[in-house]
Design a protein around this nucleic acid. Structure first.
Length: 152
DNA sequence: ATACTGATTGTTGCC
DNA sequence: GGCAACAATCAGTAT
């Protein structure tokens, strides 16, 4: 008996029809106004599969995708894992262990993280809207406060 | 020394 | 319905 492999992680009633406007990739080719332009500071690596380009992410203004429930679980799991496995080095090993345990977790246990992720997504949605609004409003990134250009 | 990789699952958007 | 790509993290590896 291999136990029911299908855990059926189907939330009874949490998020089903959530028409979130989380647009990670603009489907339509916008004007693509190269204002700030995505100028890769590096050799010009663009995100392919397994994207992980760190360093010099100028898009600090752009709200990135919020971590999923699994990621939140990872954060917590990582701490405990490192304590019991100080020899473990990076997330690779932890991730595997975490993923394994994640599958063994019950929905009730996972739902906690799901809830967090859901909230984060909502917040992200708002952040994105605000970001877009701000951008359309005319991205006024002027770190120069004080220094009144107008002489009063 | 710096940039990138790998591994995990979830979420999301388009075709 | 399914795929592709991206989200964090961190040590290790490659140039």
């Amino acid at each position: 008996m291999v136990k029911k492999a299908k855990n059926s992680p189907a939330p009874p009633s949490t998020e089903t029809s959530r028409k979130m406007v989380l647009r990670v990739r603009p489907p339509q080719k916008m004007k693509q106004v190269e204002d700030d332009v995505i100028e890769e500071p590096k050799s010009g690596k663009k995100p392919k599969s397994g994207v992980k380009k760190k360093a010099a992410k100028i898009d600090s203004d752009k709200p990135k995708k919020p971590p999923t429930a699994f990621f939140y679980f990872l954060e917590d799991f990582r701490k405990g894992f490192q304590e019991e496995n100080p020899k473990v080095k990076s997330m690779r090993d932890v991730g595997k262990a975490c993923g394994e345990k994640w599958k063994t977790m019950s929905y009730e246990e996972k739902v906690q993280y799901y809830d967090i992720a859901t909230e984060k997504r909502a917040e992200f949605d708002r952040a994105m809207t605000d970001y877009i609004k701000r951008k359309e409003s005319g991205e006024d990134t002027k770190p120069k406060d004080s220094d009144s250009e107008y002489d009063e």
